[in-house]
Design a protein around this nucleic acid. Structure first.
Lengths: 235, 235
DNA sequence: ACAGGCGAAACTTTATACAATCCTAGCCCA
DNA sequence: TGGGCTAGGATTGTATAAAGTTTCGCCTGT
């Protein structure tokens, strides 16, 4: 008997190899193990995952479309390096979309979902407690994705996945000081609002949560690297 | 002397072949020449554009990511067939995003941009006048994209491109009767509001414009094809 | 006559080979 | 000694070939 005659119609999380590569690289970027500007050689990645360049290339192209990888013609793929302007756009988009998402999530709140949220909060606290910064930053992003999944709105979910991934790079690049991953447990407050199905409170808390994250960023203006050099050596 | 020492860094509209394929197929879908469910064979397209299947495949994957093509494993690529649920999500997202976009556009309004908008309106009317439905429906979508470009917000622009393309398929599938492409020239009203830099009016007109488009749709419930068959033959 | 199954053709998927491009290092010459 | 130029290596872009899967037609048996 074949392992999977036909999983459903399309694999939910896609067990195929290109997805494995994509998710592996994505996780590495979201956990801040791969830094912006890092070269992602096709042979290199292919060897790691035991895959041909064809598959690696497909995965990299998908990541490029999600905005966390830049592909430069004849040069290769690099981890994206969002500009301050990009950062402002990303957070403006999040401030627009996420309140609406959490609003929907309030309506979709079921005991099952609330349980998952609660468990997620526990994982976040656990990672925080033992000082595991990498897991912590990843879970912090996944919290937002979880709420988007909960809302049942697949388009918002797709948009938000992209925004979260970019946010992770932005926070890595522009955070002022090493403040804890996501402030003073705003997430718990958001979950509480969802539990009470208080849509207005949920929207408000999500918005202020995002504001707080962005407030921690220092979005100095562009300064292409050459210009910065001139600035430093200029006297 | 080489023809192009280095066009800039990346080609603006991408003169490379995969973009030509992508834009060709996109245009065909947006102009309702390719109908939902149509099989997009790799050989077939490759022969049309004189390209290898490698390039065609790349283009199709990009279109799949944009949501206007479905790729079924081992079966091939097909023009997407949005469900009524998809349609509701798309228009909800547009109602959320586009008022904000047009708001930004008001601030970005310059004589140059207003000129482009005016010219676009003229083209729309011209196509409408001579009954060129295909050009008409394409221009109607491009109007919204133009405003997004005007807003200068590249993330919103990316999101909206996707939403517009899907909208085109949705309108094709679910429009009640063949009402004129975009109602009674709401677009002109929106441009007028932008010209006056009246952000509130622009938002309101955009919103009612979208409402009107959606109101013309008949979003009957899911009915997967098998289920519909059972329904039809039930008795 | 019809149901079921075998087989071949067509297509997608993956891998590999070839071509083009870029980066680097070394050399030559002023 | 320093700058510019050229050759080699490395890496990406493209095409083609091999492998696997699905689909459709035909054929046989009942």
């Amino acid at each position: 008997m074949a392992a999977k005659p036909r999983p459903k119609s399309d694999a939910p999380d896609a067990s195929d190899r290109v997805s494995r590569i994509r998710e592996g690289v994505t996780a590495a970027i979201l956990e801040h193990r791969l830094l912006p500007g890092t070269k992602l050689g096709e042979d290199e990645i292919g060897e790691i995952y035991g895959a041909s360049r064809t598959l690696v290339r497909t995965a990299l192209q998908q990541l490029a479309h999600e905005g966390i990888v830049n592909i430069e013609k004849n040069r290769g793929a690099f981890v994206a390096r969002p500009t301050p302007a990009d950062a402002r756009e990303v957070f403006e988009a999040r401030r627009l979309i996420e309140p609406t998402i959490v609003d929907h999530a309030c309506e979709a709140a079921s005991p099952d979902w609330l349980e998952r949220l609660q468990q997620h909060l526990a994982e976040e606290r656990e990672a925080e407690r033992r000082g595991d910064a990498r897991t912590s930053v990843r879970l912090s992003g996944e919290f937002h994705r979880l709420i988007a999944e909960m809302s049942g709105h697949s388009i918002y979910l797709g948009f938000l996945k992209e925004l979260i991934a970019r946010s992770s790079l932005i926070i890595l690049l522009y955070r002022r000081h090493d403040t804890p991953a996501c402030g003073t447990d705003h997430h718990a407050g958001i979950v509480a609002a969802i539990r009470k199905r208080d849509r207005e409170a949920a929207r408000a808390q999500m918005l202020s949560h995002l504001d707080e994250i962005e407030a921690e960023l220092f979005l100095k203006d562009p300064v292409a690297d050459e210009l910065r050099l001139a600035d430093v050596l200029g006297v």
